[in-house]
Amino acid sequence: MRADELLQTHTHWHGNTVLLRLTGELDLATAPLMHRAATTALARRPQTLYLDLTGLTFCDGTGLRALNHLTHQTHTTHTNLHLTGLHPNLHRTLDLLKTTSPWTPPTPPP
């Protein structure tokens, strides 16, 4: 399977806020897709980036590193990052890794 068959990214803009939805698997093969979508969105300098993980079905160590890298990207661009739709197991893993600051999000825009 191709990476774009394993992970789909959907970007929606609402003024100065971007919602990036991931659907599928976030792993070694697909992390570059998320990185590309996030980098493209951040190039427009949004005030806030919501990353919706409701449709995420799998996340390995590379996916965790990609999420961690995204926190650094948003910090560098002075963009607020909020994750939504975290599966309890992924939330627990992120909590154990002490990377939970952006993982407690408010409700995303419609």
Rank of each mutant, 00 (worst) to 15 (best):
M1E: 03
R2L: 05
A3M: 00
L6R: 11
L7C: 10
Q8G: 15
Q8E: 14
H10D: 03
H12V: 13
N16W: 00
T17S: 12
V18W: 01
L20P: 09
L22G: 07
L22W: 03
T23K: 04
D27I: 07
A29R: 03
P32V: 06
M34F: 06
H35Y: 04
A38T: 08
L42E: 04
A43G: 06
A43E: 02
P46T: 06
L51V: 14
T54F: 07
T54G: 10
G55R: 02
G55M: 06
L56I: 11
T57A: 10
T57I: 00
T57V: 07
F58V: 13
C59N: 13
C59G: 12
D60V: 10
D60H: 11
G61I: 06
G63K: 00
L64W: 02
N68C: 09
N68Y: 08
Q73Y: 02
T74P: 15
H78M: 05
H78R: 05
H78L: 08
T79A: 04
N80R: 14
L81K: 11
H82N: 05
T84D: 10
L86D: 15
H87G: 03
P88R: 08
L90M: 14
L90D: 12
H91N: 12
H91S: 14
H91Y: 04
R92H: 13
L94D: 05
D95Y: 02
D95H: 08
L96I: 13
L96M: 15
L96T: 15
L97P: 04
K98P: 10
K98T: 15
P102Q: 05
P102Y: 06
P102M: 01
P102D: 10
W103F: 10
W103S: 12
W103G: 03
T104F: 01
P106K: 08
P109Q: 11
